[in-house]
Computed example of a mutant assay.
Amino acid sequence: MSDQMNKRSLGQIIQPYIQMFDVPLILIVSMILAVGTVTLYSAGIDFPGRVEDHVRNIVIAFVVMWIAAAIPPQTLMRFAVPLYVTGIVLLVAVAQFGLIRNGARRWVDLGVVVQPSEIMKIAMPMMLAWFFQKREGVTRWREFLVAGLMLIAPVGLIMRQPDLGTSLLVLAAGFYVIFLAGLSWKVLVAAAISVAASLPVVWSMLHDYQRGRVLTLIDPTTDPLGKGFHIIQSTIAIGSGGITGKGWLNGTQAHLEFIPERTTDFIFAVFSEEFGLIGNCVLLFLYLLLIGRSMIIAANAPTLFSRLLAGAITLIFFTYAFVNMGMVSGILPVVGVPLPFFSYGGTAFVTLGLGVGILMSIQRHRKLMQS
């Protein structure tokens, strides 16, 4: 009897902490993490300590996830403006006296090195969701114009660093909120026409390496040992995997070091070579489950703020996966976007973990409101 009581009391102690997590969502994320860790072990076999660091990053992401899940959406809404303003200030600081690495000025030293553009991936949709929540029921073209200006400011600062990949992710995150807030399709068509008309101007503003990425996408064989090397080798790896793959640890493209950045941006090529088309279908199914569960949470969210924020986070997951798989497969330019919960990385893991935690917070507090 005493043992049963001890077990019961232990369960009662642990239960409140476990209840923070949405079970379907955490299971899906855990399965993607498991597959990603197995693939990373193979891809990073020549990088001592890479797997250990990856596991550490997963633990940190889970801690961030748990903390975010414990914070009510109403409290998250209060952080929207301060977080956005802090991100803008830090982006300006980067432009003025940021650290330069590999020709890019993306970091600022505050005692610890910080990359403010990563903050904006979450701060931007939070800010716009807060903005439309405050104007619920009175949304007019002026509100969408103001929202657009709030979005353009950080995106412009990030592009100047230059960091095309992150700027596109922040732009997408903000656009999703504006779209979900009720942006007219007529406006979208007009905007698309305007963007198409401005392409010559945009092209002239791109850096040489960014133009090279677009030209290489069209024909990577024009520079097979230079700018086209990434795409050529990754597509060879994907194609050589066939239906069933070469088997775990047996990928020749990866282990003969033909695939660049094989533990980060191009880890999908390693996975495709070793697990083939069947493995790719399983991975795509897991991402569809992640997006589907996130969409259910967004659809059932009780407030406009939580619906917009959850919807934007869901579409961010989709954008990460689509852009990464697209660039590795050679159908999109190489823009340095990691595969979510799969690629090796620290900051991206924290950002993604925060996003999942926010979704769990929205789902958990919706249940509390209904009970």
Rank of each mutant, 00 (worst) to 15 (best):
159 M>Q: 11
129 A>D: 07
141 W>D: 08
46 D>P: 01
96 Q>L: 13
161 Q>T: 13
161 Q>L: 07
183 L>F: 06
96 Q>G: 03
89 V>R: 00
78 R>N: 10
79 F>R: 02
154 P>Y: 05
45 I>W: 10
59 V>K: 11
130 W>D: 04
160 R>M: 14
169 L>I: 12
118 E>Y: 04
142 R>W: 12
64 V>F: 15
96 Q>F: 13
92 V>I: 15
116 P>M: 01
103 G>L: 12
143 E>R: 05
57 N>W: 15
105 R>W: 05
86 T>S: 14
166 T>E: 00
57 N>H: 15
101 R>M: 10
76 L>F: 09
127 M>D: 02
72 P>N: 07
119 I>E: 00
130 W>V: 01
143 E>L: 06
100 I>W: 06
107 W>P: 01
62 F>S: 08
88 I>M: 14
111 G>N: 11
61 A>N: 08
120 M>Q: 07
63 V>Y: 01
71 I>H: 00
123 A>V: 02
68 A>M: 15
56 R>I: 13
137 G>R: 06
165 G>S: 07
109 D>C: 00
108 V>T: 07
94 V>C: 01
73 P>E: 05
97 F>D: 14
144 F>N: 09
74 Q>Y: 11
142 R>N: 15
173 A>R: 03
140 R>I: 06
133 Q>Y: 12
142 R>Q: 15
61 A>P: 00
147 A>S: 14
134 K>E: 14
134 K>A: 11
72 P>W: 02
106 R>I: 04
183 L>T: 03
76 L>W: 12
101 R>H: 08
103 G>W: 09
163 D>L: 09
108 V>Y: 02
179 F>S: 11
49 G>E: 05
86 T>P: 05
176 Y>K: 06
174 G>P: 01
162 P>R: 03
165 G>M: 11
140 R>D: 11
165 G>N: 04
55 V>C: 07
101 R>Q: 13
65 M>E: 03
67 I>E: 00
156 G>T: 13
121 K>P: 02
70 A>W: 13
96 Q>H: 08
45 I>Q: 09
67 I>A: 09
169 L>F: 05
153 A>R: 05
51 V>P: 04
88 I>N: 07
95 A>I: 00
56 R>V: 14
63 V>R: 00
167 S>Y: 04
172 A>S: 13
82 P>Y: 09
175 F>S: 14
131 F>H: 04
83 L>W: 08
61 A>M: 10
167 S>T: 09
65 M>S: 09
133 Q>G: 12
150 M>F: 15
136 E>H: 08
142 R>I: 10
132 F>P: 03
49 G>P: 11
51 V>E: 04
46 D>T: 09
63 V>W: 03
90 L>H: 10
180 L>I: 08
178 I>M: 13
167 S>H: 11
120 M>L: 14
178 I>G: 01
176 Y>D: 02
97 F>R: 12
178 I>C: 02
148 G>M: 03
182 G>L: 05
64 V>W: 06
71 I>W: 06
110 L>S: 08
168 L>V: 14
101 R>T: 13
143 E>D: 14
121 K>A: 03
104 A>T: 07
139 T>V: 15
133 Q>K: 12
97 F>H: 14
177 V>D: 01
174 G>Q: 04
121 K>E: 04
80 A>C: 06
76 L>G: 08
125 P>C: 07
96 Q>R: 10
